[in-house]
Design a protein around this nucleic acid. Structure first.
Lengths: 222, 222, 222, 222
DNA sequence: AATGAATGAGGCTTCATTCAT
DNA sequence: AATGAATGAAGCCTCATTCAT
């Protein structure tokens, strides 16, 4: 699936193909996208000025428009690159013939696993989603989200059907809680800190499947 | 704790307190804050213009400055009102003499319970936190967050000490996951929809304490 | 001469004549004018807000409009009060039958003598003249200035005619230099400092009439 | 001494230095500064709007910010350019080996000589000094003023020590009077009128050194 | 006399974007 | 590919003034 509206990185025919010191045109473009993503993540999309992105890249703001139509084109590329990658990974996990618990575990690992390589994109998605979705051009974000939900929910349902998961939980609701827990972690997760994404994933898998409580289950508390 | 920078609603000595047809000055102010909160939630703080807030209130933008120093003063009031209320509720729950599981369950209920009355404030906090915390005036947000974390973590630790909770989970990490799950729900939760906040809370309490899986625990999967 | 456009202090029929705790209406008005003059002097007319004047008077800005039509009415009163007083004093000096040197000396003393009682008004006149004269309502300032010039120049001419003053100086130019020297002193003169206005006047009279140089005159230097 | 906060005209390394039809960037900037100075002088700093400056330059107000950070940056440049030039000229005069009277005469000529080329800047300094000095960024104005006072006072003292000047005049006070007389002349001096700045200077030198009176000196009058 | 809410015009500044060079 | 000057719309905020109470 290509969620990208504009030329994607993988499908773009390299234009000009100059072999300059700074690499090909598309490499330059990718570099700029990465730079921008970091600033978007740090300050928010709206609070980031085009001048700021340009300055960080060592050029003037007008020059950015040789690479991108608009500021929105840049976030677009940031977000769609992430979503393309994420969905591709989920598909791989689902395509294995493992049972639902194993698949879900793998998907949790995939989710936490994107925290580092796609930290900026995930942050932007968390913080600026609400703003960006107002624009028609970002409708595809909702579509991608729906597709992801589809993948998760069907796994949870499969697990329930197989008797692996409690039958009394709501699949959609459960998915949303898992999803939120993973993505929001980007707000406090710091690479190189006390916890790495692997630990995070295993910790969450444990609590998710077996719960926080010890001993006999179903005790009426609260 | 009062996180409020400006005169708080509960502690403000009633000044002049004229009883006019349009209500007291502080009622007018509160009304404006609520209006603004809704728009901030819908469009984001930065994307909301003061003209927009004023128009919705039926006045001109300049007139807003009769009530507030700045646009930031308005969000400030939105957020601190919410935090004051939340922390007060948590304190009440903690002060009961129930066991850790009961207290945590109650705190989860409190959290989900704020989703409706403080929907706008929570949304703003989720979406604009990253932007707002850049300003010194919002330092108190971090302080309030720390206090809340303190409350939760100590309950989780107490539960572990009492043998109620798994000893192998990280208290801070667990708190963060719970918190995120609750708050981010504001993004998709719609009052009057299929799920109400009570259902949400109980659902989450179930999964949180007892896990998603059925049958024997600790089986190595994935 | 009354330069005042609005009700002057001396000619205004006392309205209402209430004997309140704060004095008559005109006393209240005068008090406000004095307050305002100080702020105008300190911050400049334009940079002074009506709110600021009101705050200093312990009332709200809207209430000022019970006393004055507009902000400009207030400066108007500040300036015309000063000019009325100044011109009256000059007239007295001129009406003596002393010789030109004595009269001019006295006028210099009068000028420096206004520095303390009319410090604020003189400061406003120095700093905001350029701005205020743009408005038709302040045309009378130019008229007052012309009248003062008239008084001085005729004295200088009389002194030249009597052989008391050099015939080779330009009377108007000389007047302007004297005037400027006196008024601009308001910028650095501080009551209670090393110099009082009496010393200032005598110092200036000395240099003005007899020059800075010692010994033989007319030596070609420079 | 460079009082300039921003890149000074004399010391700026020519950046890029494109030779376009409209001149270099710094030429454009200088042109804008001159335009602005005229309006500041005519209407006062505060009463001048950036739109007005832009309109006079044939551009839109936003475009001004391509050249200057703020309205204050523009006056800053106006004033510091003048002060730099003035102080440089004074230094040259002082560095000659002439006697104090000759040096002072020359400095008077320099002062009046700036009236035409720096008319706008001097006017702004006279009228808006009181307002501008409130801002930290204009602290350097006071420093420059102090330096100038230093130069004058030491010459007056030298003249007194050499027996050229009356010993009974206060050097600082005398300096201030001279200074005020020169600068305030900018308020009424009109190039091309009856008097030119050369005449003005010689007139003032005459009165300053030898006084207004004829005949025997020190006669007690007044 | 005073309040306090509101007006409405206007101020400075920012910023994505364009375009000739 | 990049520059740099300019656009033009819009944003936040200020302030003298008005007016019902």
């Amino acid at each position: 699936m290509s969620t990208r509206k504009n030329s994607g990185t993988t499908t773009t025919p390299a234009r000009h193909q100059r072999a300059t010191s700074s690499g090909s045109a598309s490499e330059r473009r990718d570099h700029l996208v990465k730079l921008a993503a970091e600033i978007f993540a740090r300050k928010g999309f709206q609070a980031t000025t085009v001048r700021e992105i340009a300055r960080e890249a060592g050029i003037l703001s007008g020059s950015l428009y040789h690479h991108f139509d608009s500021k929105e084109t840049i976030v677009d590329e940031v977000l769609s690159t992430f979503l393309d990658d994420l969905i591709a990974r989920y598909r791989t996990a689902v395509d294995s013939s493992a049972d639902a618990r194993a698949v879900l575990s793998e998907m949790v690992r995939i989710g936490f696993g994107t925290l580092e390589p796609h930290r900026a994109a995930i942050t932007v998605m968390q913080n600026d989603w609400n703003y960006l979705r107002q624009f028609e051009r970002f409708n595809y974000l909702v579509k991608a989200e729906d597709e992801v939900e589809q993948i998760w929910v069907s796994q949870i349902r499969a697990g329930q059907a197989a008797g692996l998961f409690r039958p009394d939980v709501d699949p959609k609701l459960t998915y949303r809680m898992i999803r939120d827990t993973m993505w929001v972690a980007v707000r406090w997760f710091r690479p190189g800190g006390r916890l790495n994404t692997h630990t995070l994933a295993e910790h969450y898998i444990t609590v998710l499947f077996d719960g926080l409580a010890t001993g006999e289950r179903s005790t009426q508390h609260g």
